[in-house]
């Protein structure tokens, strides 16, 4: 009884510490990542980044290269065509 009691307490304590330091810290890390991704700060940060990028786009003479512009244009037209044909 006595040895069982002490061993149980000891094993439980060691298990708790090991679990917290290994699995627990990984869970905490992931939790913090998710929390920070969905946090208002991060959303504000993304919003700010998008705005900055838009400002850069506006200030540039040519934001999309000619080849890319043709490709995107063709792609959009293709999509529109397919959508119209479906109807």
């Amino acid at each position: 009884m006595k040895l069982f009691f002490y061993k149980t307490i000891f094993v439980a304590f060691v298990f708790f510490i090991t679990f917290k330091i290994t699995v627990g810290s990984t869970v905490k890390y992931v939790e913090n990542k998710i929390y920070s991704l969905s946090s208002k700060e991060n959303l504000e940060y993304i919003k700010k980044k998008i705005k900055d990028e838009m400002k850069v786009a506006v200030s540039k003479e040519e934001y999309i290269k000619k080849d890319d512009a043709i490709l995107i244009n063709q792609f959009i037209k293709k999509i529109q065509n397919d959508l119209n044909n479906q109807n």
């Binding site: 330091i21 627990g24 939790e31 929390y35």
Partner: peptide, 10 residues
């Protein structure tokens, strides 16, 4: 780094 008060590192 800024943390929530119950999400601090161990």
């Amino acid at each position: 780094e800024y943390y929530h008060s119950n999400k601090l590192p161990y």
